[in-house]
Design a protein around this nucleic acid. Sequence first.
RNA 1: GGCGCAUUCGUCUAGUGGCCUAGGACACCGCCCUCUCACGGCGGCGGCACGGGUUCGAAUCCCGUAUGCGCCUCCA
Length: 421
Amino acid sequence: MAVRVRIAPSPTGLLHIGTARTALFNWLYARHEGGEFRLRIENTDTSREVAEAVDQIQGSLRWLGLDWDGPHTFQLDRMDDCRKVAEQLLAEGKAYEDEGAIRFRMPDEGATTWDDVVRGPVEFQNENLTDLVIVRSDGRPTYNFASPLEDVWDGITHVIRGDDHVSNTPTQINIISAVGGEVPVYAHTPMIYGMDGKKLSKRHGATGVEEFRTAGYLPETMVNFLALLGWAPDGETTLMGSDELIERFSLERVSPSPAQFDYQKLDWMNGVYLRQLSPDDFAHRLVLWLGENGYDWDAELVARTAPIVQEKISRLAEYPGFAGFFFREVEPDATGLDGGAPMLEAAEEALGSLEPFDAEAIEAALRGAAERLELKPRQAFQPVRVAITGSKVSPGLFESIELLGRETTLSRLRAACASAS
RNA sequence: GGCGCAUUCGUCUAGUGGCCUAGGACACCGCCCUCUCACGGCGGCGGCACGGGUUCGAAUCCCGUAUGCGCCUCCA
């Protein structure tokens, strides 16, 4: 039978990074097996908030490159079908009414077992299973009833989900058996925690896929990083693109123990992917990111400055702080100007009529000026850097000056010189 | 509390009885490169939760303890 899996997020706000990881595992498995990956929205009401959340979820999945097969479905659309099944169960004596609700009769002897692909054999004593409310007194089916039914109706062959559902599984298996459905294969993946071992939440940093996008992470970074949380192809490989991930992914190699989300490693990996981009592609992504985040900076200038920034930053969001001096006036950090007046004057003079005004010539001119003042390069260049870029940390000085142009450079040198003396 | 799951460097992990004086990566520390910051190169620090077994031999198998987490809702 062809593999068919699904991701079933509930439409509450942003797509959580943990859900995204689960989606990724499902997607990798489906693509590896040549199967289908479905998207099912587990909504219990329909509202504007839900519609927006669905857009968010789809946007995040698309951004990550996780394409789903067929149209997405809504749990809400199948409420009537769920109720019909409940009536049937009632008629067969497999369920009973209880204060207006309908409860499913769980077996009270023996055990419910399954062979979890990630965790091996799992067994629950049936005596510990409580009779599940399958339809509330207001007529709405419950999650633990609707979800397994939908898996049956959709022909889901493998349920790959977070291990917070392990305890729900025996209940769901009993529901499926009662309606004569085929029990899917289960694979419970470990959860993701913050660096303090607690559930990943706001105080750890970004938790929604959209937030990582805004922070300037690349989708290929997120996919690679997330894949490595609870899975590894071997002990060596860490950098893998989607194609390689699809080729090498297997559920058997998913680890059963939880993983902590290491933002530092994410930053490192994003830096690797950023540097790996061709200069044009890097510039393109920068321009897009800036546009999406409210910067109306000249795209052509962004593209020209991109190369000297590419290997300096690890997230696109660092660009404005790092290269903003190309686009707006600077307020030099006074502590970086201290005692720099002589060099600033010398620089102004050396660059005043320099031809050609390119990085190579600029470097030669400034080194010459430093030599005449008997200053070490790092001492000499710091005030110039601060005057030009406003900061002690910047892209290469000479290239920056070339791109900034003679006029702006000279006026910034003059302004800094005035405030330094 | 009941039930269940998990436990290899700070973190992600490799490891399925001898190849392990436990390998890789991130982080950290030091050195080199260097106009700052990065990048890059070299080196270092650092771990099998604990206690019993089984075995000629255990990170690997069994039992117990501890710790953490999840579920126990007419939430999803």
